[in-house]
């Protein structure tokens, strides 16, 4: 996807440009719906998450510039977090759709971090593959399926603290691999 195009659309959405908002929807909704479906696994729930996602995008577009993320990362993060909030709420039996669903970042001194190419996907998957298989899978499960430490400990049949230690070591190794 063309980064500049998406960025321009978000900037216009921040100015309350409805046409730009609809264009942005047409451009990215399939990707974001894929993400919501992946996390929630149910079409009806994924549709609800999509609706919340775009309401958030509309309301928070003016904060996009401050957070230092690339535009697709920002959009995917909102969709994923909104879907995960719904997943957790489903488990807890209530819903809280008022939280922004994504982390608002203080304007920081690190613009270079936003300049990440899509080759990053290859690098990430390469780095995940260098981890011990279980750790890589645990990190994937947390990100893509919204699994918690408790879910993961269950799935891998290890005590919670062991899971936590494992995964944290995995994250340190991942950080090293990706920082190279």
């Amino acid at each position: 996807m063309d980064r500049n195009e998406i960025e321009n659309l978000i900037a216009r959405v921040a100015l309350r440009d409805r046409a730009a908002f609809e264009q942005l929807y047409d451009r990215v909704s399939a990707k974001l719906f894929g993400v919501c479906l992946r996390v929630l696994n149910k079409r009806a729930a994924a549709e609800d998450a999509m609706q919340d996602t775009f309401v958030k995008i509309w309301k928070n577009a003016d904060r996009y510039n401050a957070n230092g993320l690339s535009p697709m990362t920002w959009l995917i993060t909102i969709a994923r977090n909104t879907a995960i909030d719904r997943l957790r709420a489903r488990k807890k039996g209530h819903q809280d759709i008022d939280t922004p669903g994504f982390e608002l970042v203080a304007p920081g001194p690190n613009p270079e971090q936003a300049a990440v190419a899509s080759s990053e996907a290859l690098r990430l998957s390469g780095c995940l593959d260098t981890l011990e298989q279980d750790r890589g899978n645990a990190i994937r499960g947390a990100y893509l399926d919204g699994e918690t430490y408790a879910d993961l400990a269950d799935r891998f049949g290890v005590p919670l603290n062991t899971m936590r230690t494992w995964l944290r070591r995995g994250l340190i190794a991942l950080r090293e691999c990706m920082s190279q």
Binding site: S29, L69, I76
Partner: peptide, 25 residues
């Protein structure tokens, strides 16, 4: 901002996992 930079690092890197997700209209 320093903590935020850590978060942005991870958000940006881990979002690459979504590349493996196929778009669904």
């Amino acid at each position: 901002p320093t903590f935020a930079a850590h978060v942005v690092f991870w958000q940006e890197r881990l979002a690459a996992m979504a590349d493996s997700i196929d778009p669904v209209a």
